[in-house]
Write a protein that binds this DNA or RNA. Structure first.
Length: 996
RNA sequence: GCCCGGGUGGCGGAAUGGCAGACGCUCAGGACUUAAAAUCCUGUGACCGUUUUCGGUCGUGCGGGUUCGAGUCCCGCCCCGGGCACCA
C-alpha cells in the first residue's frame, strides 16, 4: 500500500460527496434540527486567506459531528457580493462589476470546495442575483410599510396606522395642521405617513466621501475617514434614505441578555446603542423669551449649573435665523476674557463657528483644550431662577442629546476645564461620601450627597435625581428622558453596484412603493457605471430606466405604483429612485434565504422557517469586525420581520462565536543605524512604521530615542537570538534587544499565507487540522509552517498505523465469530492471535477515553484538545503489534469531522467490501463511562500538601481502603514517623493529602 | 479616561480548587543508511548536588489573602491585546 498522498485522495472524495449528495439537508421532522452558519464571505479579488478557513473549519467540524450525532444539519454557504471593492476594481480595470463578481465567486467557490467543507451547495445564495435581491427589495418594502408603535414597542403595518388615524383613535402629528385624516388629500396623507415609516428620507448632513463618490453610514466612518480605503469624509446636507433603527434601540438592547454571545461582543453593541437615563430640562432665555432644552444625566446637579453651552451648529445660534439668540452688542459688564477680542457677540460667534467648521473631527479629538464664544445672551436656571450666561463651544456636539448642555463645572471634568478657561463660577452641589479618596477635589464626578441644593440637600445622588425629576415634571420644566447614542441608519449609496430601491417619486413630490409584482427591480445594464463626479448617483445616467410612467393602485393615501407603457390610461410621469442600497442590505437576511433558496413566491416558506429557525441559528461563527455593523443591522431587520409575523423567532443568532485573527509567522527584528551599528530595541521609539527595503523585503523604521537618528529593523534568523529574562537578545551581543512578535498578515509585509499553497504542499486535511490545532478558536494566534508539518506528520502516522506496518503490511485485525483473528484475508497463527487479544485489551480503555474526550471537546468548541487526544491515541496504536478493527474504525470516525478525506480513504481501505459509501454517514460512536478510567490508578500521596510518593490502587477502591494503603506505604510511613495525623483527605481517583 | 479579554517552558498551547507544563513545534543525542532526507527511539521549565542510576530546591506577571491544597477563588498593583471615547 502506497503512503499517504493527500493530492491523490482529496479530489476523489470531494467528488463522491458531491455526486451522492451526502451533505444535502432536507426537513426531517423526526430529527432535531441544527443550523450551523458561517458569515458568508465578500468574494474579493484576492481570493481566500488563511483566516477564512479558520471559522469555516470550526463550523464544518460541528456540522459533521452533529450529523453523526443524529441531528438534521443545515450548513450552507453563499456570497455577499454587492459592494464597493468590486466596483472600485471594476472602474479601475473598466470591466463590468457583474463580470468581476462572477469571476471572484467562481474562484472562492473552488477554493472552498478544495478544503472539503460539507456545505449543502444546492442552497448557495448570491446577494447580487436578481432572484435574491428581489427579496432584499421586498423586505425593504416591508420596512417601508411598517411604523413603530411606541406603546406596544412593536412595528405594525402602515394600514393599521391609517385605520387609527381614520377612526380618530390616534391623533395626527402637528404637521397635519389640526385637520382630521379624511380632510387631507392623498398627497398630504402620504406625507404624514412618511414621518412614521421605518424607511424614510430626509435632507440632512451626511458623511460624504468624495473619493468614493458616495455617502457612508456612521458605522463606516472611522476617525473622520472611510473604513474602505481611508479617504477623507465631510459632512454635507443631502437627501438620503434612512432606516429607523433608533425605534428599536431598547428592543435591540434587551434582546442581548438572552443571547449566547461573548460578553465583549454584547458590550460593543450596548456601547453602540448607548442608552443613558436622564432628563430634558427647559431653560428660559432671559429678556427675550423662548427656551433652550438640554439633556442631562445629572438632574441632581441642576443647582450647580452656572452657565450653558450650545453646539456651534445649534439652530438658536444660527446668525441667519429669525429666532437666533446671539446678541448684537456685548451686555454691560461682560468680562474681557469672554469677548474673544471681538466687537460684538455676533462677530465672536461667527468667528468661532467658522473655526469650528474648519476643524475636522480628528483635530477636535486630539485637542482637548476648551475654547468657545459668549453669545451675549443669558438663560434662567429653572430651579433657582439664576441668570447664567450662554456660550457656544465645540465640546458640545450637535449630534448628541439636544446639542445643548447645562454646565456644572463642579461635577464634570469638561465643564470644569471650560469654566477654568473662561473664569466662570464653580459651585459644589455634591459632597463625596466620607471614604471617597477624591472627597476634597473638584470636579467630583462620582456620586455622593447633595449639598447647596435646597430641598435636595442630604439625599444620595440617586435619590436626588429622582426628586429633581419629580419637581421638574410637576412644574412642567422638564421630563425624564432615556437617550440613545445610536443614530438612524443611513441606507442609501450613490453607487451602481447595489440593490436599486423599489420606489417611485411622483411629480407632486411624494414617494410610492413599487408593486410586489414588479420585483425584482433589476439594475439597468449600463456601459458607464462610474460615479458622476457630482452628487448624482450613477443610475442618473440611465435615463430610459429612470423616467417612467406609472399607475397607482390601492389606498390613494398609501398606494403602490405599477410601471406601465407610456400611453396607458391613467398613467402619470414619475421617476425611479436613483440611490442604491448599501452592502449590508443583502447580508441582513441571507441566513433566512438558505432555508428556501429557490422559492419564487416568498423569501422563505413559513413552514421551513419555523423548522430551521426555531430558537434561531444554533451556531454562528465569524469575525469580530462585524460586531456593530452586520450583527446589529440584521438583528434589526429580523425584529421588524418578527413584528410583521414573517419570522418566528425574536432573535436570529442564538449562539455566536468570533474566531480569533491569524497572524503571520513570528518574526524577530533586529535594529541598526544606517551605519550598520546595532541598536537595542529598548532604545528605540516604540512607534514603528514599515516600508519595503532596497532588497524587496519589508523593513521596520523607527528612530533612536536618545538621538532621534533613523533606525532600520530587519528580520533576523530565530537561531541567532536567545531569551534573557523577559526579553530576546542577540546571541552575538547580549546587550542588543531584539523585537519579537507576530504581525497581522498583509501584502505589504509579505507575510500572507495562501491556503492554496498549503493545500498543494500538505493537503486540505493538514490545513484544516492545523487551523484547529493552533489554539482556542477565539484567540489571536500566529501561523507556523513547522506546525503544519507537525499535523501532517500525525496524519502520515495514522496512515501507517492502519495500512502499513514497518514491514509494509496491513496492521488492522478483526475477530471472526468463530473467535479466530485475521489480518486482511490472512488468518493469524495461534501465537499471533494471542498478541491480538492482548492488544485489543490494551487499547479498549484508551479507545473509550478518546471517544469521550473528542465528543465533549467538540461540544465546547475545544478543537485543539480533541486533536491532542487523537494524537495520543494514535501514539498508543503505534505501540501495538496489531490494531483491532474497532479501535481503527472509532479513530477514523472521530477524525472524520476534522480531516475528512483521509478518514474516508482509510475507512474504505480497511473495511473493504463491507464499507458504506461514506464514513460521514455512520453514526457517532458511543462510549462507556466505566471504560474511560483505567483499572488501576497511580494516586499521589501528599503530606501537608507536599508530594511524598504514590500508590497504586484498583480504580473503584473505597476511601478507607485507599487511605489504609497510603498509610501502609513505606515511603509515607517513613515520612510520617510518629507524628499524629490531624486530617486525611482523599479525592476520589485523584490524590491523597495527609495533614499532620 | 471608561469597558471587555488576557499574562503558564525557547515557541503555540494543556490543566471540573487536587501530580503544572498534556499534545505539537524547536533543539540535542541515538538507531537505520555508503551518505543524506524521511522514519523510529530517547531527552528537552530553571537552578543545585551526584555528574551514571538518582536526589533536592524553586517555578504559572508582581504583592497580599482564603484553603489541608491556588495557574484556577478574593483584594491591591504592573504589563499586553481589543473596543469606546469631549456622548452631557
Amino acid at each position: 500500500m502506497a503512503g499517504y498522498n493527500p493530492s491523490s485522495i482529496e479530489k476523489k472524495w470531494q467528488r463522491i460527496w458531491q455526486e451522492n449528495q451526502i451533505f444535502s439537508a432536507e426537513i426531517r421532522p423526526a430529527k432535531p434540527k441544527y443550523y450551523v452558519l458561517d458569515m458568508f464571505p465578500y468574494p474579493s479579488g484576492e481570493g481566500l486567506h488563511v483566516g477564512h478557513p479558520e471559522g469555516y473549519t470550526a463550523t464544518d467540524i460541528v456540522a459533521r459531528y452533529k450529523r453523526a450525532a443524529g441531528f438534521n444539519v443545515m450548513h450552507p454557504m453563499g456570497w455577499d457580493a454587492f459592494g464597493l471593492p468590486a466596483e472600485q476594481y471594476a472602474i479601475k480595470t473598466d470591466t463590468h462589476p457583474a463580470v468581476v463578481t462572477r469571476k471572484n465567486i467562481d474562484r472562492f467557490r473552488s477554493q472552498l470546495q478544495a478544503i472539503g467543507f460539507s456545505y449543502d451547495w444546492q442552497r448557495e445564495v448570491n446577494t447580487t442575483d436578481p432572484e435574491y435581491y428581489r427579496w432584499t427589495q421586498w423586505i425593504f418594502l416591508q420596512l417601508y410599510d411598517t411604523w413603530f408603535d411606541p406603546q406596544q414597542q412593536k412595528g405594525r403595518p402602515i394600514a393599521e396606522l391609517v385605520a387609527e388615524f381614520e377612526s380618530g383613535q390616534r391623533a395626527l402629528p402637528q404637521s397635519a395642521g389640526n385637520k382630521a385624516w379624511p380632510q387631507l388629500d392623498a398627497q398630504q396623507q402620504r406625507q404624514v405617513l412618511e414621518q412614521y415609516r421605518l424607511a424614510y428620507q430626509i435632507e440632512a448632513p451626511v458623511n460624504w466621501c468624495q473619493a468614493l463618490g458616495t455617502v457612508l453610514a456612521n458605522e463606516e466612518v472611522i476617525d473622520g475617514k472611510s473604513e474602505v480605503g481611508g479617504f477623507p469624509v465631510q459632512r454635507r446636507p443631502m437627501r438620503q434614505w434612512m432606516l429607523r433603527i433608533t425605534a428599536y434601540a431598547q428592543r435591540l438592547l434587551d434582546g442581548l441578555d438572552a443571547l449566547d454571545w461573548s460578553e465583549s461582543l454584547k458590550m460593543m453593541q450596548r456601547n453602540w446603542i448607548g442608552r443613558s437615563e436622564g432628563a430634558l430640562v427647559r431653560f428660559g432665555i432671559a429678556d427675550r423669551g423662548g427656551d433652550v432644552i438640554v439633556f442631562t444625566t445629572r438632574p441632581d446637579t441642576l443647582f450647580g449649573a452656572t452657565y450653558m453651552v450650545l453646539a456651534p451648529e445649534h439652530p438658536l445660534v444660527d446668525l441667519n435665523a429669525q429666532n437666533g439668540l446671539v446678541a448684537s452688542a456685548w451686555p454691560e459688564g461682560t468680562p474681557p476674557q469672554w469677548r474673544s477680542n471681538a466687537n460684538s457677540p455676533r462677530d465672536a460667534v461667527a468667528a468661532y463657528q467658522k473655526m469650528a467648521a474648519s476643524r475636522s473631527e480628528r483635530q477636535r479629538q486630539e485637542d482637548n483644550a476648551k475654547t468657545g464664544a459668549f453669545t451675549g445672551a443669558y438663560a434662567i436656571n429653572p430651579i433657582n431662577k439664576q441668570r447664567i450666561p450662554i456660550f457656544i463651544s465645540d465640546y458640545v456636539l450637535m449630534g448628541y442629546g439636544t446639542g445643548a448642555i447645562m454646565a456644572v463645572p463642579a461635577h464634570d471634568q469638561r465643564d470644569f476645564d471650560f469654566a477654568s478657561a473662561m473664569e466662570l463660577p464653580i459651585r459644589r452641589v455634591v459632597s463625596a461620601a466620607a471614604d471617597n479618596p477624591e472627597a476634597g477635589k473638584l470636579p467630583l464626578e462620582s456620586p455622593g450627597f447633595a449639598v447647596n441644593s435646597s430641598e435636595l440637600n442630604g439625599l444620595t445622588t440617586a435619590e436626588a435625581k429622582g426628586l429633581m425629576c419629580e419637581l421638574l415634571e410637576k412644574q412642567s420644566l422638564g421630563t425624564r428622558q432615556i437617550h440613545y447614542k445610536i443614530r438612524d441608519w443611513l441606507f442609501s449609496r450613490q453607487r451602481y453596484w447595489g440593490e436599486p430601491f423599489p420606489l417611485i417619486h411622483l411629480e407632486d413630490g411624494s414617494t410610492v412603493a413599487l408593486a410586489d409584482s414588479q420585483l425584482p427591480l433589476t439594475l439597468p445594464e449600463v456601459k458607464d457605471f462610474k460615479p458622476t463626479g457630482t452628487m448624482e448617483p450613477p443610475l442618473f445616467k440611465a435615463t430610459q430606466w429612470h423616467h417612467v410612467q406609472v399607475v397607482l393602485e390601492g389606498d390613494p393615501g398609501n398606494p403602490r405604483a405599477r410601471v406601465v407603457p407610456a400611453g396607458t390610461p391613467g398613467a402619470v410621469a414619475a421617476r425611479r429612485e436613483l440611490n442604491t442600497m448599501p452592502q449590508w442590505a443583502g447580508s441582513c437576511w441571507y441566513y433566512l434565504r438558505y432555508m428556501d433558496p429557490k422559492n419564487t413566491h416568498a423569501f422563505c416558506d413559513p413552514e421551513k422557517e419555523k423548522y430551521w429557525m426555531a430558537g434561531g441559528v444554533d451556531l454562528y461563527v465569524g469575525g469580530v469586525e462585524h460586531a456593530v455593523l452586520h450583527l446589529l443591522y440584521s438583528r434589526f431587520w429580523h425584529k421588524v420581520l418578527f413584528d410583521r409575523g414573517l419570522v418566528s423567532s425574536p432573535e436570529p443568532f442564538r449562539k455566536l462565536v468570533n474566531q480569533g485573527l491569524i497572524l503571520g509567522e513570528a518574526e524577530y527584528t533586529v535594529f541598526a543605524l544606517e551605519s550598520g551599528q546595532w541598536v537595542s530595541a529598548a532604545d528605540i521609539d516604540p512607534e514603528f512604521s514599515t516600508r519595503v527595503g532596497a532588497d524587496g523585503k519589508s523593513e521596520v523604521i523607527s528612530s533612536q530615542k536618545a538621538t532621534g537618528a533613523l533606525v532600520i529593523g530587519k528580520a533576523c534568523d530565530p537561531t541567532t537570538v536567545e531569551k534573557r529574562g523577559e526579553v530576546f537578545v542577540l546571541k552575538a551581543d547580549a546587550g542588543i534587544q531584539v523585537d519579537a512578535r507576530s504581525f497581522k498578515m498583509s501584502k505589504s509585509r509579505g507575510n500572507v499565507v495562501n491556503p492554496d499553497d498549503v493545500i498543494a504542499e500538505y493537503g486540505a486535511d493538514s490545513l484544516r487540522l492545523f487551523e484547529m490545532f493552533m489554539g482556542p478558536l477565539e484567540q489571536v494566534k500566529p501561523w507556523s509552517t513547522a506546525g503544519v508539518e507537525g499535523v501532517y506528520r500525525f496524519l502520515q502516522r495514522v496512515w501507517r498505523n492502519l495500512l502499513g506496518g514497518d514491514d509494509g503490511t496491513l496492521r488492522v485485525v478483526r475477530q471472526y465469530p468463530d473467535g479466530g483473528w485475521a489480518c486482511g484475508s490472512r488468518r493469524l497463527t495461534a501465537a499471533e492471535s494471542e498478541v491480538a487479544v492482548r492488544d485489543a485489551a490494551a487499547i479498549l480503555r484508551p479507545m473509550h477515553r478518546l471517544i469521550s474526550k473528542v465528543t465533549q471537546d467538540i461540544e465546547r468548541l475545544a478543537f485543539n484538545t480533541s486533536i491532542s487526544a487523537m494524537m495520543e491515541f494514535n501514539n498508543a496504536l503505534a505501540k501495538l503489534t496489531f490494531v483491532p478493527m474497532e479501535a481503527a474504525l472509532n479513530l477514523l470516525r472521530v477524525l472524520e469531522p476534522f480531516a475528512p478525506h483521509i478518514a474516508e480513504e482509510l475507512y474504505r481501505e480497511i473495511s473493504g467490501p463491507d464499507a458504506v459509501i461514506s464514513i460521514a454517514t455512520l453514526p457517532w460512536p458511543e462510549f462507556d463511562e466505566r471504560l474511560c478510567v483505567d483499572e488501576e490508578l497511580d494516586i499521589p500521596v501528599q503530606i501537608n500538601g507536599k508530594l511524598i510518593g504514590r500508590i497504586r490502587i484498583p480504580a473503584n477502591s473505597a476511601e478507607e481502603q485507599v487511605l489504609d494503603m497510603a498509610l501502609a506505604d513505606t515511603q509515607v510511613a517513613g515520612r510520617l514517623a510518629q507524628r499524629a495525623i490531624k486530617k486525611k483527605i482523599y479525592i476520589k481517583g485523584r490524590m491523597i493529602n495527609l495533614v499532620v
